[in-house]
Write a protein that binds this DNA or RNA. Structure first.
Lengths: 264, 264
DNA sequence: ATGCGCGTTCGGCATAGTCGAAATGTGTTC
DNA sequence: GAACACATTTCGACTATGCCGAACGCGCAT
């Protein structure tokens, strides 16, 4: 692991937590000398990965990050394959559809993982709605995350208390494991106000040609539409299976990605 | 400039050009030993900035880039201030509205600069339209870019032939300089099929409290709607002035950011 | 069965990055 | 208006760190 590159990414991550930071703040948070941080920051600055406010001298993320993120979306086959199916699913069920992938482990020693939304089809006829692509939710607190965790054993959090988002969030790892087992059996995960109050949802895993899970697709509704029509869950399952097939998956639900047996 | 950080960003930039690359390809393109590239790639991999295809071993951009880009948008005051004005402008003129900023210099020795769209208000009643946030256009080939270049002397390309996008693209720096002078005088830049065939537009600069230009806002139309109603240009100018005022600008158009006199 | 191409690992050398301290600049207070 | 205090930036020396070349393992195609 290259030290300075690691530090550079940590700086970007710090800036994504706090909107603006001074050089000293960054140095304190990373426990480094200000001059060390300055060298890295300067390099990122030259590439537009971060920007410096002309007056205060503080640093923010830069426009180059937007370009990277946008290209990522363009190159994501899961996304391009999902979009037509999501449109169809939204039209038939009348609710919003999200597609998400698992985000890599957070830099700090947080053992929890997040999911990030890579495609969003708004609720039909719902007027002007926020585009939710790019939003991040703790994996254990949402249906999309549960669908991903259930079929990826390497992504399971290793902690004894999960971060609570609302009063309904599952914070007990044992209870989470039980629920993930149920998800594996049903092929569908659910969420009831566990991430955001008033938000409910179901989600199903999507696999690819390697047989592993690569993403999840799900429906998001408010309390008024909960519980969902069972037909919606069936349509979701069928959609997840179709997308998986387009990505080359031989079967559905995907096989569980096993932890690589650290008994070496 | 920290060498390894610089190389890391170059790797990300290379991956944003070619969707997928093998380690060897990356090493060749950066003119480095494969093992050197591997160390950096491995570090970026751990942070989710890039992802590795499980079968081919090749590398792609990773989901962490999406999160960075999304946070960048959230922290961009230009964007949040623009959105309400852009909605209003689109409603009154009936055309799509884009807001953009200047992208930092490209890594390779290309002296040209690009603009990147940070907000996009679709044409009212135009049905389902692609979200254009994140798209990149050469600055010299679009109205948004000309509005930015006209008021930022430090961003002028230093070359004798500009990259051609269509037959209409301005490739002669002298002609570009003339046009930028006209933009400074009028406060409005125009574009006629210079970036994309069939695409026309006008744009105006937006400044902030430092007095410098920080972005541009513009209207995009097809040939059928060109030339625009002069009232639309007036509305655009008024909008750019309003956003600038909200950002703390004392006057409009913004002052020209001078090149820092490299006669040291 | 065997060669090739690829990603990956390992170790020594030397470069390149890190850190302390000093300098510059800017905003603020008295 | 001047001096303080804070924060960013520059500079130089040390040495820890990342760079590279070579060897390994793997999968694929021949």
């Amino acid at each position: 692991m290259i030290q300075s590159v690691d530090r550079a990414v940590r700086i970007l991550t710090a800036l994504q937590g706090a909107r603006r930071m001074g050089l000293g703040e960054l140095a304190t948070q990373l426990e480094l000398a200000p001059s060390t941080v300055h060298g890295i920051v300067r390099t990122l600055l030259d590439h537009g990965m971060i920007a410096q406010e002309r007056d205060s001298g503080r640093y923010r993320l830069g426009p180059a990050t937007l370009r990277l993120g946008n290209v990522y979306l363009d190159t994501l086959e899961l996304r391009s394959r999902s979009v037509p199916w999501a449109e169809d699913l939204a039209a038939r069920t009348g609710v919003a559809v999200r597609t998400a992938v698992l985000l890599a482990g957070v830099d700090r020693d947080l053992p929890e993982r997040d999911v990030i939304v890579v495609a969003h089809e708004p609720r039909p006829g719902g007027g002007r709605q926020m585009n939710e692509v790019g939003i991040v939710v703790p994996a254990h607190a949402c249906a999309l995350g549960k669908a991903l965790l259930a079929f990826d054993d390497t992504a399971l959090p290793e902690t004894d208390t999960l971060r609570s988002m609302t009063g309904e969030t599952i914070t007990d790892p044992a209870r989470l494991r039980d629920e993930l087992a149920a998800v594996r059996a049903a092929g569908i995960a659910t969420e009831a106000e566990e991430a955001v109050l008033g938000e409910y949802g179901v989600a199903a895993p999507v696999g690819d040609h390697s047989g592993a899970v690569v993403g999840a697709i799900g429906l998001v509704v408010t309390q008024a539409d909960w519980p969902l029509d069972p037909a919606a869950a069936d349509a979701l399952r069928a959609t997840a299976r179709s997308i998986s097939r387009e990505l080359g998956a031989a079967s559905w639900p995907p096989a569980v990605t096993e932890r690589p047996a650290a008994s070496a």
